[in-house]
C-alpha cells in the first residue's frame, strides 16, 4: 500500500486504534483493528440536549462531552473486549468543529496515549468522513470520488491514494445539511432537520413543486441558499400548500444536484468508484439515487451504513490508522483547530 518510512512500525493488520470524536454534538469512541475491522463503535448523541434551541449550543455540548468522554471510552473498550494495554494508538478529531468540544476529546486522547505509552494521532474530521465508506467494505479502488455532505460541509473530493486528495467542488454558500435544517425549521418540522424532512417527504410528491436546481450545469460547485429562499417564497405565496409536498420537492431538488455533480465529477476524473459520506448521506432519497446512478454508470459504490455516515469514532480510528502509517505519531503538544481544512493537492 503505502511506502512511508517506518511503515509497519505502529500499523499492521493486527494493530488496534482507539478513536475519539467530540467535534460537535456526539461523544463517540471506537476500537478499529487494522484500519478497517470495527471491533466497537459507541456514539452518545446529545441531540435531546440541543433540540429545544433548534441547533447545537457549544457550551452545552462541551459540558456534556466532559461528562460522557470516559464512560463512552470505557464502553468502547469493553464492547471490543479490550483492556488499555491492547490499544496500539489513540486517535482524536482535532478539527474542524467546535473548539471547546474538540478540546475535551483531544485532551482525553492525549492523556490516554501518554498513560499507555502509545502514539497519539491527530485526525481531520473531514478526512475521517472520507474513510467512513471503506469501513464496511475494505476493498479500496483508487482513484475514487467522494461526495461529502453534512451540516457543515458539501464537497466533492478526488481521492488518488491515501492522503492524496483534490478538491473538485464545494458549496459556495450553505452546506446541504444546513439547508435541510433551515427549511425544516421554517416548515416547523423541528431539529435536526435532515431526518425530519426525510420522514415527512415519504408521504409527499417530489414533483409537486419544481424548485430550482442551482448551478446544475455550472461546474462542480454547489449553492443551496437560493433553493432555501425559493422554498420560503413558495410557502408564503401558497399558504395552503402541503408541507409533505414541499419537503419532498425540496429534498428532490437537493438530491438531484448532489447526484448529478458526483456523477459528472467521477466521469471527468476517470474514477472507478464513488463514495458517499457525511450526515446527509443518511438521507433515504440520496442513498437510493446514489446507488441507481452508480449502477447506471457501472461505477463501484461505497455507501456507508447510516450509523457510519453520521459522526462516529470508527471513522476517526480508521483514518488515524492510515495517518499514522503516512506521518507517524502526532506530537503531544498538539491542540485543536476549529477551522482545520482538508489538506489537498492543487486541483
Amino acid at each position: 500500500m503505502v511506502d512511508a518510512p517506518g511503515d509497519d512500525r505502529w500499523t499492521n493488520a493486527g494493530s488496534v486504534v482507539l478513536g475519539i470524536e467530540t467535534s460537535c454534538d456526539e461523544t463517540a469512541a471506537a476500537c478499529v483493528r487494522g484500519g478497517g475491522d470495527v471491533l466497537s463503535s459507541v456514539v452518545s448523541s446529545q441531540v435531546d440536549l440541543h433540540a429545544r434551541y433548534g441547533g447545537v449550543v457549544p457550551e452545552i455540548a462541551s459540558r456534556a462531552h466532559n461528562e460522557l468522554i470516559i464512560p463512552v471510552t470505557a464502553r468502547a473498550l469493553f464492547e471490543a473486549g479490550l483492556d488499555g494495554e491492547d490499544v496500539d494508538a489513540v486517535a482524536a478529531t482535532t478539527g474542524p468543529g467546535l473548539i471547546g468540544a474538540l478540546l475535551v476529546g483531544v485532551s482525553a486522547a492525549k492523556a490516554l496515549a501518554l498513560a499507555w505509552d502509545v502514539p497519539f494521532i491527530s485526525v481531520n474530521h473531514l478526512e475521517a468522513h472520507l474513510y467512513a465508506g471503506f469501513l464496511e467494505e475494505p476493498e479500496l479502488k483508487f482513484p475514487l470520488v467522494v461526495l461529502l455532505v453534512s451540516g457543515g460541509h458539501t464537497m466533492l473530493v478526488l481521492m488518488e491514494d491515501h492522503g492524496r486528495y483534490r478538491l473538485l467542488g464545494q458549496t459556495l454558500d450553505d452546506a446541504a445539511g444546513e439547508a435541510f435544517d433551515k427549511v425544516a425549521r421554517f416548515l416547523g418540522l423541528g431539529y435536526p432537520g435532515g431526518p425530519a424532512i426525510d420522514s415527512v417527504a415519504m408521504s409527499g410528491d417530489p414533483e409537486a413543486i419544481r424548485f430550482p436546481r442551482s448551478m446544475m450545469d455550472d461546474g462542480l460547485d454547489f449553492s443551496f441558499s437560493g433553493l432555501k429562499t425559493s422554498v420560503v417564497n413558495h410557502v408564503r405565496n401558497n399558504p395552503s400548500v402541503s408541507t409533505e409536498d414541499v419537503a419532498a420537492s425540496f429534498q428532490a431538488a437537493v438530491v438531484d444536484v448532489l447526484v448529478a455533480k458526483a456523477r459528472r465529477a467521477a466521469q471527468q476524473h476517470g474514477a472507478t468508484a464513488l463514495a458517499l459520506g457525511g450526515g446527509v448521506a443518511a438521507n433515504s432519497l440520496l442513498r437510493e439515487q446514489f446507488l441507481t446512478a452508480c449502477t447506471e454508470d457501472g461505477m463501484h459504490a461505497f455507501l456507508p451504513s447510516r450509523a457510519m455516515c453520521t459522526d462516529n469514532a470508527a471513522m476517526i480510528a480508521s483514518a488515524g490508522w492510515y495517518r499514522l502509517r503516512l506521518d507517524g505519531p502526532t506530537s503531544l503538544d498538539c491542540g485543536a483547530d476549529p477551522n482545520l481544512r482538508l489538506s489537498t493537492l492543487p486541483a
Binding site: 466532559n66 468522554i69 470516559i70 485532551s107 492523556a111 498513560a115
Partner: peptide
C-alpha cells in the same frame, strides 16, 4: 475542561 478531561483519562 482540558484539566478535568486529562485528569479523568489519566486516572481511568
Amino acid at each position: 475542561r482540558v484539566g478535568v478531561a486529562t485528569a479523568k483519562a489519566l486516572a481511568f
